[in-house]
Simulated assay, not measured.
Amino acid sequence: METKEAQALLEGQAEIWQHLFGFADSMALKCAVELRIADIINSHGGPITLCQIAAGIDNSPSLDIPYLARIMRSLVRKKILTAHNPSDGGDTLYGLTPASKWLLHDAELSLVPMVLMENHPWQLAPWHYLSQCVKEGGIAFKKAHGCEMWDFASKNPEFNKIFNDAMACSAKIVMGVVLEEYKNGFDCLGSLVDVGGGTGGMIAEIVKAHPHIKGTNFDLPHVVATAPIRKGVSHVGGNMFESIPTADAIFMKWVLHDWSDEHCIKILKNCRKAISEKIGKVIIVDIVLEKDNNDLFDETRMVFDLLMMAHTSGGKERTELEWKKLLEEGGFPSYKIIKIPTMPSIIEAYPL
């Protein structure tokens, strides 16, 4: 019995060590992105040596090869990269994996902007205030920076760009799946407003796939001010807590999880006022937490809930029951959830 308990305690210690240094994996990932390691390997069309990788790193006359080797060892260990030792005793060759292909800067689908944004000191600082928020309430981001994230972005053009780039890259990934899995959902619509649409990438993709739709990208004035001209899309600045442009339907991706229930109900009530009675609906692309769901993204969905604590003004991820209550109070008594092969689901909500 003692041996079993000792083994369990040892395993518990090992597990805590792993969690304790979980940040190191994220930092190694950020390092790989900043050095463009995946891009350098990709540009050679196949596995290459450490010296070839070093030669491809720009503006590094005094590059430290042993440091680079240790970063590479960590990335290989985590299966971000592959390492192959030739039988002739030559130098180790490093190659890409399906994971590292998401770290290519110029790829059509890339997580590079998200890696850079979530690991930026501005975004890491609020995590240190979670225990303080538990004890006394409040907003972690505000405790770290003196204002909420949206205000911080409006005053800080560099952060605004980092944030918008990250949102655009995640939108592109998710929208590819949404357009594939929800083709018929847009067919009956003549007009669609993307609430919190950032610089308009999502609504542009929807309009491109469904040219009959008149698209409106709606976000805060400082956000749409940096939005490029997009075919078939009008950019409108405003505040979703005050009013939302009218349309047949409202689209919201990863918007409601940023806000408290009270805020979400206010947004939903404004959506209700904005849509037509007959074919009106709200299309929500957001996470639905499920108990004992062990798909590829389940662990990350739970992390996203903590992310909402760190970065948003009372936001959280919700279970289906929590979504149901929210929708009813916001004026949408009926809904259906459409599961798609990515992190969020599609929630289609109706006023009737």
Rank of each mutant, 00 (worst) to 15 (best):
S234E: 15
E328D: 15
E158Y: 13
S345P: 04
H105P: 08
K324V: 13
N85M: 12
I346R: 02
L256Y: 05
I37S: 05
R301Q: 05
F251A: 01
K142R: 13
T246A: 14
I53M: 08
E11V: 09
F332L: 06
V223P: 00
L81S: 05
H222K: 09
R301T: 03
A166Y: 04
V112F: 04
D258M: 02
L130T: 06
K135E: 10
H44K: 09
P221L: 08
D292N: 15
I57E: 01
V174K: 13
M1W: 04
T199A: 14
M27Q: 15
A32E: 09
L75M: 14
P66F: 02
F141P: 02
V224Q: 07
A204L: 07
I65K: 13
L116I: 03
I16E: 08
G237Q: 07
N160T: 09
M240D: 02
F251P: 01
W150E: 12
L352C: 11
Q123N: 15
A153L: 15
E329W: 07
N270E: 09
K278R: 11
F332C: 04
T300R: 14
I346C: 06
A225K: 12
F218Q: 06
C147G: 06
V255L: 14
L321M: 14
G22A: 09
Y335G: 08
G95M: 08
P351N: 05
I40R: 00
L81C: 04
L327M: 09
N293R: 15
R77W: 15
E299R: 14
L29C: 12
T49C: 09
H311M: 14
I48V: 13
N156P: 02
L268A: 03
L104E: 05
N270T: 03
